[in-house]
Amino acid sequence: MSLADDTTEDHGDHGGHHLPAVEDWPRGFGEASWWPFITAVGAAGIYVAAALFVLGRAEDPLVGPMVGPAATVASIVLFLAGLYGWLYHAFVVNFWERGTDHHSAHTLRLAMICFLGSEVATFGAGFVYYFFIRAGAWPPENLPHLLGSLIVINTAILVLSSFTLHFGHVALRKGNRSRFLQWMAVTLTLGIVFIGGQVYEYYEFIVNEGFTLTEGAFGSAFYGLTGLHGLHVSLGAVLLGIVFVRALKGQYSAERHTSVSTASMYWHFVDVVWIFLVVVLYVGAEIGA
């Protein structure tokens, strides 16, 4: 760390220790940053936008029907801008000058583990609903044909993507950058293909089979759980995309790969959830039906 301090002029007069992100905005202060505030306002704005959406649907609406969606878009833009500013100043800029710090790497991995623990609870509530209805009268009236070639192929793609990601990570740790980049590209492609497959499945169910979100108890479970999982895969693809872009820009090395490993942990977790989901929701619904 001290090496990094000496190279940055703002840090010069702080006697061997430097303040966080003095080039942050507002510039020149050690313990101030607008980014958390902006990110929080953007995130809260998404909730306010959802509220506006509900208000716009009421019988005697307080706001127009398009106010909610417009506010959603604006909030997401603000949220992403805040995230970008925060992550850019904290992690991306001066990547090599900041030097390595095994301590913070450890902290970040622990935080990811904690976050994944909270994700177990997030998914848990949805699965509990499904177990509730699965334990009751079965099958429900409108059970679509769940097990087909699409779901087998899609599952194989997602599982494969976990392996390719792992190969990429191993390649990076062995110092083979080009191999790392190739595996990352493959992983990202597989992830996007998986999301496409999910969209295609939704399209088949909703348009061709008439099986929708409001189609009874199983519809809620199916779209609730696969939708929640789809959101997670999409977020995972965004994370892998960020890692990939940073890798293309020349960041990461055999010693510097924390965000590769945290993004990997997230991706593997989402993969495991998917396998569990296929077993209980797809296979479990058809068995005994």
Binding site: V54, R57, C114, G117, S118, E119, V120, A121, T122, F123, G124, A125, G126, Y129, L213, T214, G216, A217, G219, S220, Y223, G224, L228
Partner: peptide
């Protein structure tokens, strides 16, 4: 908190879906 609040969060989202999008949770 790590295990309690996210579970409430999902339960609340299901309640919101029931109220607004006619799901059956």
């Amino acid at each position: 908190i790590l295990f309690a609040f996210p579970l409430l969060g999902s339960a609340i989202v299901m309640l919101l879906l029931d109220r607004n999008l006619a799901t059956t949770f």
